[in-house]
Design a protein around this nucleic acid. Sequence first.
DNA 1: GGCCCTTTGAAGGGA
DNA 2: TCCCTTCAAAGGGCC
Length: 413
Amino acid sequence: MGLPAGGSLSLFCPGGELGQPPPAHMGIPPPYQLDSKLAAGLARTPMYPFPGGTYPYPMLSPEMSQVAASCYMLHRHTPSMYPISSAASGFRSPYPTSLPISSSSLSSELYRFSPTLGGGLGLGLGPALVPPPPSKSDLDSHHRYARSLEKGSSSSSSDKPADSSANSNNKEQNKKPHIKKPLNAFMLYMKEMRAKVVAECTLKESAAINQILGRRWHSLSREEQAKYYEKARQERQLHMQLYPGWSARDNYGYGSKKKKRKKDRSPAELGGNNLKKCRARYGLDQQNQWCKPCRRKKKCVRYMEALAAASGSVPLAMATPQSPCSEEDVKLEEMSDASDDDADTPLNSASSPGGLSALSSLASPASEPPPAPRHPVGTNPRDANNPLSVGQLTSQTWPRAAPRPPHEAISVS
DNA sequence: GGCCCTTTGAAGGGA
DNA sequence: TCCCTTCAAAGGGCC
């Protein structure tokens, strides 16, 4: 593919073309430089194994997927980012009354505003479309907020912001509407593509859907990603205009207790092997067993927790293994698996035949065998007898239209 | 009922 | 400067 002017090719990515998104202050779409952080991030191994595939729908070719995605973008409203609430919900509208927002058509308590709405304050991001009904999470969070307004400081800890030990904080929260963060590029992409993925798959679990979307995001071309980065940049700009004093920090602890999911991992997850970092514990050929921070070349969670000699066990609860919803996703999974390891790690390493067991073992404590994946009969892409098996599929060409370079590895120094 | 899961990216604070 | 944490969306799963 062509290289944008002034750009540089990324060293490696599962999609082969990815790089680092531009800094927030840059108004230009990528060329994204791939730094080590991103490279490590790209090497993530999804926590949801995708052992089997159900292909209930005719699959779009990658090209068609992209076309469909583009069409989708053209015709579907990009839901607004920022909630505006009715009086019934107990929220104040966070929007200036001068904003060209019409909520007359809203059927819900929530209204989401987007730069795309009505031309988006001249940003021209897209057509004005009817906002979608509130999502479950919207309702969850906003109900939480509404409850917090009602309950005040007498609510349970789970209803209070983690840093709201003081009533003053609560009062402050009561006064402030919740202004949501502007969506980043990937979130915008997810919003657009989620419905399509859901339609293609039998999956409905968002966690699984998000994994697919994450893979597809990596498989997007730079230009395609650039569209979303640009959208996100404009969203942020608009958000800054609307809420000059707003900080993402304002939302910390909003509506619920502080989340510390990642850090709460316990020794059980450590596999019982304590004071060794993942690299030393599992070796380079079993990087799929590494904790995420190690994969990202960051501090080893397991090591740190072992150091802290944390007690209690909170094994990472894994959701039911889901199926990739397309051959493309199967292949993306393969690529991702491969990218998790360095170049010296074969696609199907001995430690992780097919990669799935490794994924599962990553998800579960080493001492516990992962739950058997549920494969619809004949749909397991790992099944050699399956015409859609990975073995069959990986002999085919890369799904994307653009030719994919062979895997290039980022050396782990 | 409400948090968790999962994904990437942005942002802010701390070291 | 790097690292860590939180939050954006989404909705089924699970306690």
